[in-house]
């Protein structure tokens, strides 16, 4: 029997979770933009717009300390970050293109060496996804195999209904536990009809075919053409739910400071620059090629997944209008 939660009760749920001292993160109006931020009350939740940044930052912060060092009485001491202090978190109101990203990133963060900063946050968080009834002409989640109602990655999945309430499906045990702990906010019933989804402009892509083309066309005139205008900023990578590249830097003096891990982008000219001055990806189109290859070939080679959820953020944000969906369509339509 599906569970139903009214919008008011959803907001009440947030209030309760905040009271339980959980870190509740959801879309919230911050200045003039909607971002995933800690909600302090149910009324903070804004479900009108796709947040500018993806929800990956709950697991993979923009910038976080990974250790601190201090010289004490002449002896250097390195201190680990106490990851047990990471809060129990609930991500609420993430559409499938955001909720689905941890399911993709888990692979790279846990193969062989395990990034406990990411994984600990993952273990401590519950993801409440929500079916997407908005979307614009930049959206292409269907094209990369997701859908506005895809439950992948969500622990509890909400489907907006026409009467303003939500049908809930507890996808995982974490989701069930969340419902069970607040059972009085949910009611059983068939509920109203779901709100309709928005059509997407990009047709479903044949990702296998795209990957094959990428495999055979490391050198191709296409790369020169599409990245010709790329100005080399990191906007696409930083707001992407799936981009996971990072940099590690020390900040502080030689006696006292922290080492930080923070977002980095393959579009930056210095990303792969050797100290000697040699740069394997010395021009912008090689860097852009790496972006596409990483998402649609390399990641699949390594982990069997596509590193893209079709959220369309990079399309909306690109200063020069580079459209990854258009590039994929171009590749998809190639004959050989």
């Amino acid at each position: 029997m599906p569970q139903i939660i009214t919008e008011q009760n959803l907001r009440n749920l947030i209030d309760l979770l905040v009271k339980e001292a959980k870190l509740v993160v959801g879309p919230k109006l911050s200045g003039s933009v909607v971002l995933y931020e800690p909600l302090t009350a149910g009324s903070d939740l804004t479900l009108d717009a796709l947040p500018r940044r993806s929800s990956k930052e709950l697991f993979f912060p923009i910038c976080e300390d990974i250790l601190s060092y201090k010289r004490e009485n002449g002896a250097m001491k390195v201190n680990d970050v106490d990851r047990s202090k990471f809060p129990e978190a609930v991500l609420i109101g993430a559409p499938p293109c955001d909720a689905g990203s941890p399911a993709i990133l888990d692979a790279v963060m846990s193969w062989d060496y395990k990034d406990e900063f990411y994984l600990e946050r993952r273990r401590k968080s519950t993801i409440v996804g929500i079916a997407c009834t908005k979307g614009d002409d930049a959206c292409f989640c269907r094209a990369v195999g997701l859908a506005p109602d895809a439950e992948a990655g969500s622990d509890l999945f909400l489907t907006p209904l026409k009467d303003g309430s939500y049908a809930c499906n507890a996808v995982t045990e974490k989701g069930q536990a969340l419902v069970a702990a607040h059972q009085n906010l949910f009611s059983e019933g068939a509920g109203a009809e779901p709100k309709p989804f928005v059509d997407q402009a990009v047709a479903k892509l044949n990702l296998v075919k795209i990957k094959k083309w990428l495999e055979e066309h490391f050198e191709d005139p296409l790369w020169e053409k599409i990245a010709d205008i790329c100005v080399g900023c990191g906007a696409c990578a930083f707001i992407c739910p799936a981009c996971h590249c990072f940099d590690i830097n020390d900040e502080g003096s030689t006696d006292d400071g922290v080492r930080r891990k923070h977002w980095d982008a393959c579009g930056f000219a210095k990303f792969t620059n050797h100290a000697s001055g040699h740069n394997p990806r010395d021009v912008q189109n090689k860097r852009y090629r790496n972006r596409i290859m990483h998402k649609f070939k390399y990641y699949d080679d390594k982990f069997g997944k596509t590193l893209c959820t079709g959220c369309g953020r990079c399309i909306r944000a690109c200063p020069v209008g580079i459209d990854i969906a258009e590039i994929l369509e171009t590749i998809n339509s190639k004959q050989d």
């Binding site: 060496y113 990072f246 980095d264 792969t272 050797h274 394997p280 390399y298």
Partner: peptide
């Protein structure tokens, strides 16, 4: 050799 940061297959630059 390539520029590396993490050394453990996460940071995405030595590929």
């Amino acid at each position: 050799e390539n520029r590396m940061k993490c050394g453990v297959g996460k940071c995405g630059r030595c590929n």
